Amino acid sequence: MLILLVEDNEANRVLMKDILTLTGNKILEAGTGEEGVRLAQKHKPQLIFMDVELPGMDGITATKILKQDARTRDIPVVAVSSYYDEKEKRLFLANGGDYYLSKPIDVELVLATVRRFLPDI
């Protein structure tokens, strides 16, 4: 299976990729919301981890675009936010997001989230 990781911060991207690699899935990486949308439309991953704060197009806007597109609307999108913000969480979910995680990254929670959305792995 393929997981798309959309994260602009290199240290966070490396950490998340290392964690996601433990699941045995292939990981595709994007550093911007625009690139994330393009890669999701092209490769149709089974799960997307989307940073909320990205340069250019933010993760909420990227998620909204993906959820409005027939090619990608059924792909679960999990927000990864720098901090827990109830208003941001509501906005993300209102724009089609499926789940919301806040940093610092909890390895077990990330792995549990993958199992939640990809139970066949």
Rank of each mutant, 00 (worst) to 15 (best):
A40F: 06
I60V: 09
K67S: 12
F92E: 08
Y84Q: 01
K17N: 09
L15R: 13
D8H: 15
V78N: 08
E86A: 13
V114N: 07
A70T: 03
G56M: 03
D74C: 11
T113K: 12
E34R: 15
I75L: 11
I3H: 05
L39N: 02
V37C: 00
G96I: 01
P55E: 04
P104N: 14
E29N: 07
L15H: 07
R73T: 03
Q68R: 14
P45Q: 14
P76V: 03
V78C: 08
R38Q: 12
L47P: 02
P104H: 14
V80E: 09
R116A: 04
G59T: 05
E34M: 10
A112C: 01
D18R: 15
I27G: 02
I75Q: 12
S81P: 05
L66N: 10
R13F: 01
L22I: 06
E53H: 12
R13T: 00
L66I: 09
D98A: 15
G24N: 11
A112E: 10
N9L: 10
A40M: 13
L54N: 14
R13W: 04
L2A: 08
R13G: 03
D74W: 02
D98H: 11
E88Y: 10
L2D: 14
N25F: 05
G97H: 13
L15Y: 04
G33A: 03
L93S: 00
D8E: 15
R115T: 06
F92M: 10
L54G: 06
D8Q: 15
V6C: 14
E7F: 09
R71A: 10
D85P: 00
I48E: 14
I60A: 12
S82V: 13
R38V: 06
K64F: 08
I65V: 08
K87P: 00
N12I: 05
R90I: 01
G56E: 11
R90Q: 12
K67F: 09
R73C: 05
E53K: 14
T61C: 05
L109W: 00
N9G: 05
L15G: 04
I60Y: 04
